[in-house]
Write a protein that binds this DNA or RNA. Structure first.
Length: 279
DNA sequence: ATGCCGACCCGAGGTCGA
C-alpha cells in the first residue's frame, strides 16, 4: 500500500502537477494540504478521471485539506477533536479507507499573529497529541501525515534557512513533536534514512531550491503495527524542480499492508513510479 | 539587515506563508 501527503500550495494552480504525479506514482491514498479553496471549488473531476474518490475540508483563500483514495472513504472528523467549535481553520481531516485511519494535517505555522499566533499552534499540537494518544489506547492502525511546520532537530533544516527564533524551531514546538514520538509513533522517512536530510520544503525566495536550503517539515508518523510493515519512505524531490512547483514536495510511504485486490495498480510499474529512493 | 517569491483577496497593494 502506498500512502502520500503533499502540501500543494493551491490545488487550483497545481491540479495539473497533482494529476501527472498521481499517474506516475499511483498512491492508494493521498492527503493534500493548503488547497486554498472551498469544497465546491475543489477539482474533484480531475481526480475522478484517475479513479480517486475525494473528501474535502475547504476554506476560502487559506489552509484547506483533502483526502483522495481509490477505495471508498469514510470521513470521521473534519476538525481536530477538542478545538473550539467556532474555529473555522481547515487544517485537519481524519478518514478511514483501505482499512486504515488516515489523518491529514496542516499544522499552524505559528510565526504570524504574534504570541497569540504561536500559542494557537501550541494548543493545536497539544490536541493533536491527545488525539494520537487516544488512538494508541484504542490500538487503532493509523497514521498522521502532512505539513507539521516543525523542524524536530538541527539535522532537519539547512544552516541559515530559518532564523533561530522561528516558530518551527522553538523548544515548545519541538517538545510537542517529540510527545508524538514518545506516544509510540514512527517517523517513517527518518527511520529509513537516518543520514539524509530528506528536506520536503524549499522557500521560493533567495534561490533556496538551487542552493538546497531546505526544511524537513512534512512527515508521515505511523502507529506501531504500520511501522512494522514499513517498506519505503521518502520525499519526492523531483517535484520541486518542475515548472511552477509547490514549495513543498510529496512524501511517499510504502507499507506491506493488505488491501483489496481490485485497488491494486497494474503489476508492471515503470522504474520512475518508485520514488522511494529519491531522497 | 532586509528582501527576494508566490498565492490569496480582488482589481491595488496588503497579508500570509516558513
Amino acid at each position: 500500500m502506498r500512502i502520500a501527503s503533499w502540501n500543494v500550495n493551491s490545488i487550483r494552480v497545481r491540479q495539473t502537477h497533482v494529476k501527472a504525479w498521481l499517474e506516475r506514482v499511483r498512491p492508494d491514498i493521498v492527503v493534500l494540504q493548503e488547497i486554498k479553496c472551498e469544497a465546491q471549488a475543489f477539482p474533484r473531476g480531475v481526480f475522478e478521471e484517475l479513479g480517486y474518490k475525494s473528501e474535502v475540508v475547504g476554506q476560502k483563500a487559506y489552509n484547506g485539506v483533502a483526502a483522495l483514495s481509490h477505495r471508498d472513504i469514510a470521513i470521521h472528523h473534519r476538525a481536530l477533536p477538542g478545538l473550539a467549535p467556532d474555529d473555522t481553520q481547515a487544517r485537519y481531516i481524519e478518514v478511514e479507507t483501505e482499512g486504515l485511519t488516515v489523518i491529514g494535517i496542516y499544522l499552524p505555522n505559528g510565526n504570524s499573529g504574534g504570541e497569540a499566533g504561536f500559542q494557537y499552534k501550541i494548543a493545536w499540537m497539544d490536541l493533536l497529541c491527545e488525539r494520537a494518544e487516544a488512538l494508541m489506547r484504542e490500538e487503532r492502525n493509523f497514521l498522521i501525515t502532512g505539513d507539521f511546520n516543525v523542524c524536530p532537530t538541527e539535522f532537519d533544516y539547512a544552516a541559515g534557512a530559518l532564523p533561530p527564533t522561528d516558530a518551527l524551531l522553538r523548544p515548545e514546538s519541538r517538545a510537542r513533536y517529540r510527545r508524538l514520538i514518545y506516544a509510540g509513533l514512527t517517523d517513517a522517512v527518518r527511520t529509513l534514512h537516518p543520514d539524509a536530510p530528506a528536506y520536503t520544503f524549499w522557500d521560493y525566495q533567495a534561490g533556496c531550491w538551487e542552493r538546497d536550503r531546505g526544511l524537513r517539515i512534512d512527515f508521515s508518523l505511523l502507529s506501531p503495527r504500520l511501522a512494522e510493515k514499513l517498506v519505503a519512505a521518502a520525499p519526492d524531490r523531483a517535484e520541486r524542480g518542475e515548472a511552477q512547483p509547490s514549495d513543498h514536495v510529496p512524501v511517499v510511504v510504502d507499507l506491506d499492508w493488505a488491501r483489496p485486490a481490485e485497488a491494486r495498480p497494474s503489476e508492471a510499474q515503470p522504474a520512475e513510479a518508485r520514488p522511494a529512493e529519491a531522497v
